[in-house]
Structure formats: C-alpha cells, structure tokens
C-alpha cells in the first residue's frame, strides 16, 4: 500500500474534471469519429450503441482468452468492422431506411454482445497499459489523473488525421462528394456505393475501439450496463460538432469532463441537486444544441444528402 493521499480540496474538482475528461471522453471520441466518417458519406448509423457494446464485449473476451489487451482492441475493431459492413449492406438495399436499420442494429449489436458476454465469468481481463505522465507530481490525485490510456492519444491523432483526410486527400474528397451530392459524385465517376460501404464499415470499426476502452481501462469490467447510452449520445454529439472531426474531439472532452461533475461535487461536500449534476452531460447536449442550431446557422457542415436516398 502506498501512503494515503492528501486531500486536494477545491483543486480536487479541477483535477477530477480534467482526469474525467481524459478517461471518460475516449468512448465518445471514437464513436463520434466513426459516426462522423459514416455521416460524411451521406448515411446515418444509429446502431453505434450496439457497436460499442459489441466492441466492449469482444475486447474483454479476447483480452481474457489471449492475455493480450492489444489483441482485444484489434478484435473489437474487427467486430465493429463486421457490424459496420452489415449496416452498410443493409442500408444500400432498395427501400431500407437508415434510421430504422440503425435501431435494428442497436438491438442486434447489444443482443449479440449480451449473448456472448454471458460466458465471461472472469471478474477482470488483462487491462491496457497506461502512460504514466504524472510521475513528477507528489500529489497522488494529480499523478492518478495523469495516468492516461494510450487510446486517448490515438483518438486525438485520429481526429486530426480524419480532418486532414477530409480536406486534403482524394479519398476524403470522394467521401464528401458522395455525402453532399451522390448524383454529382456518380457523374464524376465515383462508385458511390463502394465509397459508402467503406465509410460505414470503417466507422463501425472506429466506434468499437471506444468499447474496448470501457472494458479494458475505465471502468474496466464487462457488464451489460457498461455503455449506459454513450453510443447514442456520441451520435448526437456529431450533429453539434457539425460534422467536423476536430470539433468531435472537443465535444468528447467536454462530455467526459461533465460526466465527472456530479460525483466530484458530492465528494467535495456539495450534496444538493446531485441528480441535476449527474444529468449534466445530457443538459449540456441540450444547451449546445440550442446554442448551435439557430434557424439561420443551423446544420452548417451537414452533408447534403445525409439520410436521403
């Protein structure tokens, strides 16, 4: 046992919020980046909640069976790719509605995850190694907040990479053209169906990595209630990040921090209204939606053909 940590008082809140942002933002980050990629191609995948759960379960199972958490992350991504591919195939059938198919995918993904997840009786699977960036601090709370999952940095790098892909590369422009105006894209000789298939599948793979974070670091267990609606919240997050990968990153950090607000205020002795503070991520969603969606500026950046045939 190490020496008991000293109390941080009010600074504890700041540390908790920053720590919370770096721990709790990762699922939001990966799911929203995956959804951003999907929606840029003009399709919606509401089934991310199911993908997140499948990713969480697969990562836990594979890490437990093989002893390698990184194999768990890869397996989660593979499971996400499969679910993404299924959604891509489904939504390209004639007269299939994206939203309806997405809801079916939530049920399918979570049902599949619960079914296979039943057999994991191990309390914990081998966890992802953490980067210890807080070694300089003598305050255990700070040191602990700065023990950061490598997936956090992968997520940040991905958001900048996606931004670069969308703005600077041929593939990115093809995806955006497909999402904005599939007719025009076809006229340019782009295989719209193939581009969409690729974008939706890759989006699923990204989102599932967020699930791996849930079972392999924070909170680090497999439970049917592990996602708690984060997959759905992250889809909403893409809308108010206005389909920009870098804004998705910022929004994810905000949400991760907001998640820590309720518990840390209570531990500081502010006991009233904890239901309200616990609801802060949801209130934040509403507030940001209202702030960003005035009739004039609404949905700038929205892919032109999103959700249409």
């Amino acid at each position: 046992m190490q020496l008991p940590p000293e109390s941080l008082g009010g600074w504890g809140l700041v540390v908790a919020l920053c720590g919370g942002a770096m721990r709790g933002s990762i699922p939001y980050m990966f799911v929203s980046l995956g959804e951003c990629l999907t929606e840029k191609s003009g399709k919606i995948n509401l089934g991310m909640e199911g993908v997140l759960l499948m990713g969480a379960m697969t990562a836990f199972g594979v890490s437990d069976l093989t002893g390698s958490p990184w194999l768990g992350v890869l397996a989660a991504a593979a499971a996400g790719l499969l679910l993404g591919a299924l959604h891509a195939w489904m939504t390209q059938q004639p007269a299939v509605n994206d939203v309806a198919a997405g809801i079916a995918m939530i049920l399918f993904g979570s049902g599949l995850a619960f079914f296979f997840g039943k057999r994991f009786v191990a309390p914990m699977a081998p966890q992802l190694p953490l980067l210890n960036l807080g070694g300089w601090s003598h305050t255990p709370a700070v040191a602990s907040a700065l023990r950061i999952s490598p997936l956090f940095f992968v997520g940040i790098a991905l958001s900048f990479l996606l931004h670069w892909v969308f703005t600077r590369t041929r593939w990115g422009l093809q995806i955006r053209a497909t999402g904005d105006d599939p007719q025009a894209a076809r006229a340019l000789g782009i295989d719209v169906n193939r581009v969409r298939f690729f974008a939706i599948t890759a989006g699923g793979g990204l989102a599932a990595i967020g699930g791996a974070h849930l079972t392999l670091y924070f909170p680090g267990i497999w439970s049917e209630g592990i996602s708690g609606g984060q997959g759905l919240m992250a889809v909403a997050l893409v809308i108010f990040a206005r389909w920009s990968p870098r804004r998705c990153l910022a929004a994810a950090l905000l949400f991760g921090g907001a998640q820590a607000l309720g518990p840390s205020l209570q531990s500081l002795g502010i006991n009233g209204y904890y239901h309200l503070f616990n609801a802060s991520p949801y209130l934040l969603t509403l507030a940001v939606m209202i702030a960003t969606c005035s009739p004039n500026r609404s949905l700038t950046g929205m892919p032109g053909a999103l959700g249409k045939k």
Binding site: E6, S7, G12, S144, I221, Q259, S264, S267
Partner: peptide, 17 residues
Amino acid sequence: VLPVREAEASSSLVDQG
C-alpha cells in the same frame, strides 16, 4: 448499475483523501 459513474465517484472520493 452505472459502472462509469461508480468509477468516477470512487476516483473522486480517493482524490479527497
């Protein structure tokens, strides 16, 4: 059953000593 919030709550309690 709120695993993520339970982990946050536990962590913030430890931060308070």
